[in-house]
Design a protein around this nucleic acid. Structure first.
Length: 261
DNA sequence: AAAATCACCTGTCCGC
DNA sequence: TGCGGACAGGTGATTT
């Protein structure tokens, strides 16, 4: 679930809570989420420093400290940051908990253990080694068009390929393609320049609007596709009739067979 | 080279 | 009531 809009909301949440608070302890309750680090390393690199800024790239969040260490969070499907002070506000699945000054805490909460935490010093090197492409909200139209032309895959696969465009997941790929009137399996390289421009603008529009709604799917307009995903008989918001549902790239996909060419 | 498949995980929901 | 199975959805490895 945490795709680009969700992670952007997490970023703003952290900016308004943990900045600039110093770290006094790090507790690890499940080592599964530690990707390239250990509890002693987190302690050594973070305790005594403060969180100073937050940066997002795709679905990845980077917390800068006033030391050399940068903490990278990826939330998998069910992860979220939780900031709290009262013990009764502790979330259900805290895997790593940072104790901050004045008794505040930041928990990396992750029900399904698919999230990961990295400790690093150089974001560019991290993005290179993990082959994470340009962020979907910062890629310019020329680079986007190039990615489209160089691709041999279908549109949905391309939009979800983090090495080529970072940040879009299953739900927003469908929403973007619906808005653009394009079918998920349509070959990317077959788009006309005009269609490419439309898709680029629709991608930005959907992501920006989702962020403006705090990535809260209950707040999305009835004209969007996403609210139909949870319905028993999903129908095209444009009134074309029932939506089609199937697997594209192994992921549950909704699209309108009438208005998505 | 792209797409399909499985594995990783847990909680929820559906049907028998 | 209870239990098995499908499903949710991001990613990475493996197979087709």
């Amino acid at each position: 679930m945490p795709e680009l809009p969700d992670v952007e909301v997490f970023k703003r949440y952290l900016e308004s809570t943990v900045l600039p608070k110093s770290i006094t302890d790090v507790e690890v309750t499940d080592y599964t989420v530690l990707a390239n680090t250990t509890q002693p390393a987190l302690q050594r690199e973070l305790v005594g420093n403060a969180f100073m800024s937050v940066q997002r790239h795709g679905k990845q969040l980077f917390l800068h400290t006033d030391g050399p260490a940068i903490l990278a969070m990826h939330f998998g499907m069910t992860g979220k940051p939780v900031y709290y002070r009262q013990p009764e506000k502790k979330p259900e699945h805290p895997r790593v908990t940072f104790t901050l000054e004045e008794g505040y805490r930041l928990a990396f909460d992750c029900q399904r253990l698919l999230g990961r935490i990295h400790l690093l010093k150089d974001i560019d090197a991290f993005l290179r080694t993990h082959e994470i492409g340009p962020d979907a909200l910062r890629i310019d139209e020329g680079d986007f068009a190039e990615a489209i032309q160089n691709s041999r895959s279908g549109l949905k696969s391309l939009l979800m390929d983090q090495t080529r465009i970072a940040g879009i997941g299953n739900v927003y790929a469908d929403e973007i393609l619906f808005r653009a009137h394009l079918s998920p399996r349509h070959k990317a390289a077959r788009l006309t320049p005009a269609q490419t421009t439309t898709l680029y603008r629709d991608m930005k529009y959907v992501l920006e609007q989702a962020i403006a709604q705090q990535a809260d799917r209950n707040r999305y307009p009835r004209t969007w596709l996403t609210p139909q995903r949870t319905k028993k008989s999903p129908g095209c918001p444009r009134g074309c009739g029932p939506l089609r549902q199937g697997k594209v790239n192994g992921r549950t996909t909704y699209w309108c067979p009438k208005c998505q060419e």
